[in-house]
């Protein structure tokens, strides 16, 4: 029966690492020359996320490349123990699904995420901040909202892309992979673990 054999929600497109590795370096150098202003073309975005995927595959990390309606984006699922700093008995295991997607109108990458409890119910933005009070004072707080996923067209939490330019600009000339550099900044707000290997190689 077809129900028992549903298609995987995402089409997984694993890239052959060895073949691509050499190409990446040349490609990325070329792109960097254009990066004086902090916008990023979709083509460049794809090059960067494929570079991340190659490293992920070589270190048994959990990034996956998804292709939906011709949109490529990265996802990674990761569970984290969250504690309410005001009451350490109040703790929960939250599972995040991170999406690194391209936003056409801002021409920047967007970090979206779903976050749910162990029983599958979604954690509201309010509850999320309860466990992350220490992050409230940063300006990023205002930019975390619920929006439509650019590729999946369903609601998802995301950092509004309006501040991404600012962050990207700082890395525009120095970073081999601005997406990694940008993630290394925003990851703290969503408990995203980013291995040193990515930063070393970018």
């Amino acid at each position: 029966m077809s129900l028992f054999n549903p298609e995987d929600p995402f089409e997984i497109d694993l890239i052959s690492i060895t073949e691509r590795a050499a190409v990446f370096n040349v490609e990325i150098k070329r792109i960097n020359a254009k990066m004086d202003n902090a916008i990023m073309s979709y083509k460049d975005f794809v090059t960067y996320i494929e570079a991340i995927l190659a490293i992920s595959n070589s270190t048994s990390d959990y990034w996956k490349l998804n292709v939906v309606n011709d949109n490529k984006f990265l996802t990674k699922k990761q569970s984290v123990l969250l504690e309410n700093p005001e009451d350490i008995n109040e703790r929960l295991i939250a599972t995040f699904e991170y999406h690194v997607v391209y936003n056409i109108s801002y021409a920047v990458p967007v970090l979206c995420f779903d976050v749910w409890n162990q029983n599958g119910s979604r954690i509201s933005l309010e509850d999320y901040w309860k466990y992350n009070k220490h992050l409230r004072d940063f300006n990023m707080h205002d930019t975390l909202t619920q929006t439509d996923h650019p590729a999946l067209n369903r609601p998802i939490f995301a950092f509004h892309p309006c501040k991404t330019h600012e962050i990207l600009k700082g890395f525009a000339r120095t970073s081999k992979n601005p997406i990694v550099s940008w993630l290394s900044v925003v990851r703290h707000f969503v408990h995203l673990e980013l291995l040193e290997t990515y930063i070393k190689n970018c």
């Binding site: 028992f4 054999n5 549903p6 929600p9 048994s60 569970s79 984290v80 123990l81 599972t95 162990q118």
Partner: peptide
Amino acid sequence: DLNLPVNLIEVDSTSFNLHFLEHET
């Protein structure tokens, strides 16, 4: 994952597939 006190056994929509969606991780 880094700070987890337990290992999670997860189920999702692909849990009903005929065959395990094999992933080496």
